[in-house]
Amino acid sequence: MNKQRAQEIASSPVMAHVTHNGTTVYIQNVDDTRETARIYPIDQPEKEQEVSVNELIEH
Rank of each mutant, 00 (worst) to 15 (best):
I57H: 04
Q4I: 14
M15L: 15
Q4T: 15
Y40N: 07
E58K: 01
R34H: 12
S12A: 11
I42G: 01
V14G: 08
Q44A: 14
E58P: 00
Y26I: 13
R5M: 13
D43K: 04
M1Q: 10
I39P: 00
T19H: 00
N54Q: 11
R38N: 14
V30S: 02
P13S: 09
K47R: 15
R5E: 13
E48V: 14
I57L: 05
D32S: 15
L56F: 06
Y40S: 09
K47C: 12
T23G: 06
N54V: 10
R34F: 13
I9W: 02
A37H: 09
S12T: 06
P41Q: 02
K3P: 06
I27Y: 03
E8L: 11
A10H: 01
V30L: 01
T19C: 00
T24K: 02
T36N: 08
G22A: 01
V53W: 02
I42F: 03
P13A: 07
I9V: 11
S12I: 06
E48P: 05
T19D: 00
V14C: 05
N2R: 10
G22K: 01
Q7W: 03
T23L: 08
E58V: 03
S12Q: 03
S11T: 15
E35I: 10
P13V: 11
M1K: 04
E58L: 07
Q4F: 14
H20G: 05
E46L: 10
E46Y: 14
V18H: 00
Q49I: 09
R5T: 11
H20K: 10
N21K: 15
M15P: 09
E50R: 09
N29G: 14
A37S: 11
Q49P: 09
N2I: 12
P13F: 08
R5P: 08
V25N: 01
V14E: 13
I39T: 05
V18C: 01
S11M: 13
A6Y: 04
H17Y: 08
S12N: 10
E58I: 02
V53N: 02
E48W: 10
V25D: 00
E46T: 14
S52E: 13
Q7N: 09
D32F: 07
V30F: 01
A10W: 01
V51H: 07
T36Y: 04
M1Y: 10
N29Q: 12
H20P: 06
N54I: 08
V25P: 00
K3V: 12
K3D: 13
E46M: 12
H59A: 12
A10R: 03
Q44L: 08
V53S: 02
E35G: 05
H20R: 05
V14A: 11
N21G: 11
